[in-house]
Design a protein around this nucleic acid. Sequence first.
DNA 1: CTTTATTTTCAATATTTATTGAAAATTAAA
DNA 2: TTTAATTTTCAATAAATATTGAAAATAAAG
Lengths: 167, 167
Amino acid sequence: MKYQEAKDELIQAWGNLGYSWGLNKTMAQVHALLMISTRPMSTEEIMQELSISRGNANMNIRALLDWGIIERVSVPGERREYFKSEKDVWALARQVARERRKRELEPILKVLRKVNDVSGDGSEELKEFKRVTRDLKNFAEKSDGLLETFIRSEENWFWNTLMKIMK
Amino acid sequence: MKYQEAKDELIQAWGNLGYSWGLNKTMAQVHALLMISTRPMSTEEIMQELSISRGNANMNIRALLDWGIIERVSVPGERREYFKSEKDVWALARQVARERRKRELEPILKVLRKVNDVSGDGSEELKEFKRVTRDLKNFAEKSDGLLETFIRSEENWFWNTLMKIMK
DNA sequence: CTTTATTTTCAATATTTATTGAAAATTAAA
DNA sequence: TTTAATTTTCAATAAATATTGAAAATAAAG
């Protein structure tokens, strides 16, 4: 397999995976591009490489900055901005986990805590509702705690421990 | 908070969370409805409860069956079909993990294995590409293994072990 | 068979989300 | 300042996705 081919396929695949991680397709593709680049890239280069418009490039770059998985680089004597990606896969995963926790898990936890506190008669329906929301809440809280640990952890410690679990 | 209000809010919130789990919104709402229902529900009832069309209800019910998180129930002497959800949150999470692993992680792993095997000169670009894809592949393989363990595990064993990690 | 209840399909439509590109805003240098 | 390079915004448009509803298919009952 040739380099250009491999590169295109990776960017494509990363686009799909990123999508299922809560990024959008183009955002994930810009990220993939920066991941494999040996040097920071400008908006211009990103537009060109992915054949996307200036506006699109700009918005997705900003979204990636907002997620905290790429950063600005300024080159002395140059006016335009360059961007580079966090290359450490572990740090990347932690950052994504941090954002998803904030964007997805925390909101549902809030709702589960609230609705579990429903008032009313002792009907079968209500009992079932409380039982289900309590179970969901417990599960979500455990997941949240695990995620929290993951986010704070150091790579080796975390994997080593998990490896032991998995034997 | 009143029951009807709590129910609506849960269904809404579940719709959003389900979405970030790879289901679509309506699919997740149908699922939420069946989760809190004390008895199996028919297509008719689901349509009514969520104010959606027959076609929409039918398609999303089939998608849930396909994901393996709801099942058909036939009532003796009745012609129409009823549906019920897996109520065990743990079993549900494992099933979702199983499907996502199949639908998302396996495809990217396949690509990573393939592109890591790229041929070419000893250029800096190529070296970087190989380095990045190797790291991603390792990470994805570890995640895959962990997911595999999760899917096969028993609830208590898994959480107890994780609890120890988190101390 | 024929009738009738029920489920499934799918073209048309609506809704949501992503993308473009040109104009406006910003920023740094002259 | 003014000029020019660069970034940002955003209304218009395109593309993708979800939803409807009626017609077709299926399957049980008479």
